[in-house]
Amino acid sequence: MNLALVRFALRRIVSAAAFALIVAASAFTLTRLAPGDATTELVASGARPEVIARERARLGLDRPFSQQALAWARGMLRGDLGESSMFGRPVRALVLERAAATARLAGLALLVATLIGLPLGVISGATPRHWVARLTAPLSLALVSILPVVGALALLLLAASTGWLSIEPGAIAVPALALALPLAASLERLQAQAVRDVVSAPDLVAAAARGIPPHRLIWVHASRQSLRPVLGVYGVVIGSLFGGSFAVEVITAWPGLGRLMYDALRGRDVFLVSGCALAGAVCLTAGNVIADLLRAIVDPRARETS
């Protein structure tokens, strides 16, 4: 760890935190700007004006926007994200709870994708004529072409018609695979490319000439070297996965951040919306920071840009 790298890291982290805060603030403002608020549901149920006024007062919706925003910002600095009007609970607890569910899903997807993608990538990169590689290439091309919506729907259909996977709400297999399979394919293709680059590099050719057995060459030397570019990708993957996938979570009814954000938007739950936005922004920026750092470690030139 040299000083430049540390400085770079600090700068990225500070600006990322600022970003996350700005995003949350914009979400708060945008949601408040849109007409309607959390009490429209009460109006719907025929509540008396007094009841609605009481509820608005309780939620602080009767105060001018500037005051609301100030109160929200003050709470935010204390780590208090306000209370959700839909769930009647502190936003922070709610977001953390759902973030945990998303993290479980993202973690599993990442693990599955890595376990499938990287070894297959090494095989098809190093031995393109091997039958595994021949099988992998078209398959991964097909999987890469599956959009999240399409993947989630196709898996749901498969699960429902065969009964191989549970489709009950809360079952993790379908959403995890919907996220993992395209990712596995992406990682495979990336890893294969990286291995191809490394295998043809002079030092590996020299090593092969020295009589190091080919399988050792591939699995130890080549894969270790080729892992470096792949590592850089993980940051971005982590950021996007842990932020919660809207399509996958909504279609497969996974109670994660994406789903929570969807519900919060629908219920005009101002504090919850900004809480979700904050969580999403934190994940994304954290992912970006990790990606930048990994890239910076791999390639010192990257420190200069951005």
């Binding site: 007409p35 309607g36 429209t40 549901e41 109006v43 719907a44 629908r266 219920g267 005009r268």
Partner: peptide, 11 residues
């Protein structure tokens, strides 16, 4: 429209 928005417009 979402329920809340629907009701808001009706009311």
């Amino acid at each position: 429209l979402e329920r809340g928005e629907l009701i808001r417009r009706i009311v």
